[in-house]
Design a protein around this nucleic acid. Structure first.
Lengths: 223, 223
DNA sequence: ACATACAATAGTGTCGACAATATTATAGAC
DNA sequence: GTCTATAATATTGTCGACACTATTGTATGT
């Protein structure tokens, strides 16, 4: 009866598993991976593992050193800033393009997500927050209808996912984010594309600031 | 006395070779690759080849179908448009950020490249054009100092490289491009970042139009 | 001539083994 | 005790073989 899925290749399963382990923090930045260990854990040979690792490297989640090994990519403050600046640009664009394409139904859907975010914040329900926050941002990504930009945003989000998660509990973060979302939503309603874009850029940059601040605090505590 | 490089891994060599074969048009979109054939051509086993292929897939240069095989990724008109829109956004950003960081030396360097482009256009020296055009665009990419955005631009350029090369000979292309470059350069001199950004966006979008038009013409001739 | 079943072929997916390289442990000199 | 040289170990890089799947070719019945 076997293990389960099975119409995906082993490589694909391994790829998704390691990817998720990185994004959800089971594998931490800087952590060392050896092919042998992964091979033992998942009970498969090294071939599909190596191929999965190559994919993850290309997507910026792992870093290799020839004949040395693999580690979960560790980002410098500078690199984190670069990634968030890129996201600000791309997500800002997505919002700007979306605005003109939205009808009443879209506004209702977004307002609904927005309400759930307010509730999640009030209850301090972080998983609920993360889920709806992803939906909120994803809505614009999809609506903009640019496949390439959508993929780039998703890829960049993955690179900082665990850094960002560590900062969600940052004081006042929820409150600030909700204000930003409200501003974006408001501009959408008024069909003010440029204003919506600016609000999104501000939103992502603020997130960047929170992430970096909480990172410094974490390091100060540790060192 | 052996082949040459040799302190790069076989995988890395194969990766670069296939990548270049795609970007420079030795491998055409839609062309089918089999691991066996590549293995025979390069005289190595399939393992490093498969790993290289995975990298190229992640970068959007190949497309896979499970148990079916690999082909050089063929882009639809829509996908080409998406990629150029993304490039317009990213390269526009790079220019905008660059402007404030430029000193007289930079302006001189860019003017120099610009002059060489004019000469290449006059002589219809396409390789010289391509080389200096890459330098011109690369200058802003580097100057902007955002590693992530720089990598994204390079990746996206590769995806459309051979499509674009087919269109360089498009009538009036050189002339138009030189006007655009002049406008960008002019805005840089005047330190008008927004204007420079807009000129670059226009430039990339115009390139998109030329590529798509020359593509349609090519298809009409063929069908 | 056409459709179906089945065999032959070709290609991808995975595995275990070995080679090359890097890291760690050990021993010896001072 | 510390440094260096060397042996032992661990890890990555590459290979050839086999399993599984899809495609193509062939034969048979109608």
């Amino acid at each position: 009866m076997a293990e389960g899925q099975s119409d995906k290749s082993i490589r694909q399963n391994i790829y998704e598993r390691i990817r998720d382990d990185i994004t959800y923090g089971n594998l931490m930045p800087g952590e060392r991976l050896t092919e042998k260990k992964l091979s033992d854990i998942y009970g498969v040979s090294r071939s599909p593992i190596r191929e999965a690792l190559r994919q993850l490297e290309s997507e910026g989640l792992l870093s290799f050193e020839r004949n040395k090994g693999i580690e979960v990519r560790k980002l410098s403050i500078n690199q984190i800033e670069d990634i968030y600046e890129s996201r600000a640009l791309l997500e800002g664009y997505a919002v700007r393009i979306s605005v003109d394409r939205m009808d009443n139904k879209d506004i209702i859907n977004l307002s609904d997500i927005h309400r759930k975010l307010i509730k999640a914040a009030k209850d301090k329900d972080i998983p609920l927050w993360l889920q709806n926050n992803a939906q909120f941002h994803g809505y614009f990504r999809e609506k903009a209808g640019n496949e390439t930009i959508s993929q780039l945003i998703v890829m960049l989000k993955r690179r900082t996912y665990h850094y960002q998660n560590m900062s969600v509990s940052y004081e006042r973060a929820f409150e600030t984010y909700i204000e930003h979302h409200a501003a974006i939503l408001d501009s959408c309603k008024k069909k003010e594309a440029d204003s919506a874009e600016q609000s999104m850029i501000l939103h992502v940059r603020t997130t960047k600031r929170f992430v970096i601040e909480s990172l410094s605090i974490g390091r100060n505590l540790l060192l």
